[in-house]
């Protein structure tokens, strides 16, 4: 370690993605769910030993008799959530993205999605938001879930969007998988006059030189990247796509159709099977073929370590993104 450089820790459980001095809000999912549940007696909270680490403890404190701690048993969690939904309740079932996607897949697929049951699956540590290594890094959760019929998939960017997405996914009747940023979550989109709409992409800023298409925390990075690129006289547009499925293909095609503007998709996910390939297929099917590239995680089991280190290493930090785009454009 070089002298003077602060020692970076893994902090895998805290997994904060906020940068130094960034505005944040604590536990936006937990607070939004508790607020919504005050008017919706059908909402129940269920978890598999990760209530604290999915911010569901806020709901549990507000509504202890509507909180179901199912123990460390994700298959049971999803099966029981299906049963609860059959009896007319709306379970918000939480765990880590790796466990939902990898371990409980069949129970979500056949128990919940095939029956279009009204279960909201909300999962922390999506993509690379943990330094614990592959056991906790859900780098392929979107690839896994995109193939599941009937499932709506949401990847919110910040605290504001999480707060708005909770009532929106509750208003949607059917199964939803939402990627969760937990703890002290950055607040970014309040500066963009933004409002979350399920199934809708939103152009957060326009620009003539490149179109960045992104979801989740990568939209935050894309906005920072766009600001940084102004110094290079590069004018970047940012299209935020918080609903991964169903994809807002019309808005993507309209934005990408602008002549002479290359398209880059930035995602906190492996480059296989996520937003990047979804956008690429959309463009090809739509007959629009701009210069195209992906910024995302490699097709590999990733290292353990501190998140800032890993985000730099795998090219999804703002600095890495700026360098990639400078070199490309």
């Amino acid at each position: 370690m070089s002298a003077g450089k602060p020692r970076l820790t893994t902090s895998a459980m805290i997994a904060s993605i906020a940068s130094e001095g960034q505005r944040t809000k604590p536990a936006p999912f937990g607070h939004a769910l508790a607020a919504l549940a005050a008017d919706r007696p059908d909402i129940v909270g269920m978890t598999a030993d990760l209530g604290k680490y999915t911010d569901l403890h806020i709901f549990a404190k507000a509504f202890p008799d509507r909180y179901y701690q199912m123990g460390m048993a994700e298959q049971l969690l999803m099966g029981a959530a299906a049963g609860m939904a059959r009896e007319g309740f709306m379970p918000f079932a939480t765990t880590y993205a790796v466990f939902a996607a990898r371990r409980a897949y069949d129970f979500i697929c056949l128990g919940i999605a095939e029956e279009k049951l009204n279960v909201k699956i909300v999962c922390a540590l999506p993509g690379l938001t943990s330094g614990y290594g592959p056991s906790h890094q859900a780098t392929e959760d979107l690839a896994i879930f995109r193939g599941m019929p009937e499932l709506t998939i949401v990847d919110p960017c910040d605290a504001l969007e999480i707060e708005q997405a909770v009532p929106a996914i509750a208003a949607h009747r059917g199964p939803v998988y939402m990627r969760l940023l937990r703890g002290n979550v950055p607040l970014v989109l309040d500066e963009y006059n933004y409002r979350f709409e399920l199934g809708k992409a939103a152009l957060l800023r326009d620009g003539a030189d490149v179109l960045i298409v992104s979801s989740g925390l990568m939209t935050m990075r894309a906005l920072e990247t766009a600001n940084a690129l102004r110094a290079d006289r590069i004018d970047a547009a940012v299209l935020h796509v918080p609903t991964i499925k169903p994809l807002d293909e019309a808005t993507i095609l309209t934005a990408a159709a602008r002549t002479g503007r290359p398209v880059v998709v930035a995602e906190n996910h492996t480059v296989i099977g996520g937003l990047g390939e979804a956008v690429a297929a959309t463009l090809l099917r739509g007959g629009i073929t701009p210069r195209f590239r992906q910024i995302g995680l490699p097709d590999a089991f990733l290292d353990a370590g501190a998140l800032p280190t890993l985000h730099d290493r795998y090219g999804i930090s703002t600095d890495a993104m700026v360098q990639t785009l400078r070199a490309w454009l």
Partner: peptide, 16 residues
């Protein structure tokens, strides 16, 4: 899968 769903339904029936 059935018994896990049964647990959820039994919990739901008790809620009701």
């Amino acid at each position: 899968q059935g018994l896990g769903m049964a647990v959820g339904m039994a919990l739901g029936l008790k809620r009701k």
